[in-house]
Amino acid sequence: MNYTLNQLRIFLKIVEKQSVTKASEELHLTQPAVSIQLKNFQDQFEIPLTEVVGRKIYVTDFGKEIAEAAEQILQQVDTISYKTLAYKGRLFGKIRISVVSTGKYVMPYFLTDFLRLHPGIELEMDVTNKNKVIKSLENNEVDFALVSILPDKLKVDTIELMQNKLFFVGNNEEQFKGKATMEKILKNRPLLFRELGSGTRLTMQNFIEKNNIKVEKKMELTSNEAVKQAVLAGLGYSIMPLIGIQREIQNNDLRIIPLKGLPIKTNWNLIWMKGKNHSPAAAAYMDYLRKNKDDIINNRFSWYENFN
């Protein structure tokens, strides 16, 4: 046997994603490179680790056992690395964060300098919708979660980061004379929603119900990027977080349509389960945020804070 740690990591990712393509995307490698490493790894065993049925890859029972062993090996390698760093007096460990989809425009800026200060700390950041974020927090699968709507049924502690502003937006094809209302505008095109479980969708629904707005035509899309592209194409209108459409607004590809009651303002909060016993890495990050969040906002988001 002459397998490498890289091959073990690639095989584990394929097992996790059940797809060579998805594994290559997560690992930031080309699909052919991942396929070659998988073949080289499998060739060292007399029993198949995977099989392809149709166009889908399946992990055999033997492959699952090898994956479990590979995970243990890699954990031991990480332990060696962590112990080495600890001996040198450096902070080490892993921070796991689950982020609602629009939070991908926010969270990296609150992490970059901290991770540069502590190169021994690894980051796992999952970007998904609000329901899945809260579930991962409740199941203790992550250290922190970034949300714009605080969960009702969980006891959490928070660090408030910055405002989340949502505006009613469309492309530049139509012009409106006189005093426009959302109902009048939506006579021509549908209102574009995120999927169920999205915090942005919940915020939109609360606004519509509160203002008794009648929406006849609706369309649902499963990501903010999909909503943005649909609005750009003239497919409809939406209420969107400003943080994700800066470039399109500046380039006049999208325009904000001023309406009464908008923008909707919520707050981005980093949250964690009350009473959670944080690792040294996670505790250090909390301390860093409390001391540096205002400077990060001033340096990275001044355009955003001043936009009304």
Rank of each mutant, 00 (worst) to 15 (best):
residue 264 I to M: 11
residue 176 F to L: 11
residue 170 G to T: 07
residue 195 E to M: 02
residue 12 L to T: 13
residue 90 R to K: 15
residue 231 V to F: 10
residue 149 I to Q: 11
residue 28 H to N: 03
residue 8 L to C: 09
residue 226 A to V: 03
residue 279 S to K: 02
residue 301 F to T: 14
residue 33 A to F: 05
residue 63 G to K: 10
residue 80 I to T: 02
residue 171 N to P: 10
residue 290 R to D: 13
residue 161 L to S: 10
residue 169 V to A: 05
residue 165 K to N: 04
residue 250 Q to S: 05
residue 177 K to F: 09
residue 149 I to D: 06
residue 248 E to F: 14
residue 45 F to R: 09
residue 124 E to R: 08
residue 66 I to A: 08
residue 86 A to C: 00
residue 151 P to C: 14
residue 37 Q to M: 12
residue 26 E to D: 02
residue 279 S to P: 03
residue 78 D to T: 09
residue 184 K to P: 06
residue 151 P to N: 11
residue 182 M to P: 12
residue 281 A to I: 08
residue 242 L to I: 04
residue 49 L to G: 15
residue 277 N to P: 07
residue 149 I to H: 02
residue 204 M to P: 08
residue 236 G to L: 07
residue 234 G to S: 05
residue 77 V to G: 04
residue 257 I to W: 06
residue 47 I to K: 14
residue 196 L to C: 01
residue 1 M to K: 11
residue 230 A to F: 08
residue 105 Y to N: 07
residue 214 K to T: 03
residue 98 S to Y: 09
residue 139 N to A: 15
residue 178 G to F: 05
residue 172 N to E: 01
residue 173 E to N: 09
residue 187 K to H: 06
residue 200 T to N: 02
residue 2 N to W: 15
residue 200 T to S: 01
residue 133 V to R: 04
residue 88 K to D: 03
residue 137 L to S: 13
residue 152 D to I: 09
residue 165 K to I: 00
residue 99 V to K: 10
residue 42 Q to R: 10
residue 112 T to I: 06
residue 158 T to Y: 06
residue 96 R to W: 09
residue 218 K to R: 12
residue 167 F to G: 01
residue 190 P to V: 11
residue 135 K to W: 02
residue 134 I to C: 10
residue 248 E to Q: 15
residue 285 Y to W: 11
residue 285 Y to Q: 13
residue 237 Y to Q: 10
residue 65 E to G: 07
residue 163 Q to R: 09
residue 128 T to I: 08
residue 101 S to V: 00
residue 11 F to W: 14
residue 135 K to T: 14
residue 230 A to K: 15
residue 109 Y to T: 10
residue 7 Q to R: 08
residue 161 L to Q: 07
residue 35 S to M: 12
residue 157 D to H: 14
residue 140 N to K: 13
residue 191 L to Q: 12
residue 80 I to E: 08
residue 168 F to I: 04
residue 45 F to P: 12
residue 84 T to M: 12
residue 112 T to N: 02
residue 48 P to Q: 11
residue 21 T to P: 02
residue 305 E to G: 13
residue 104 K to L: 06
residue 198 S to K: 00
residue 117 L to S: 07
residue 4 T to D: 15
residue 257 I to A: 07
residue 74 L to G: 08
residue 60 T to F: 10
residue 179 K to D: 04
residue 268 W to D: 04
residue 41 F to K: 11
residue 240 M to S: 03
residue 108 P to M: 00
residue 281 A to G: 11
residue 90 R to L: 15
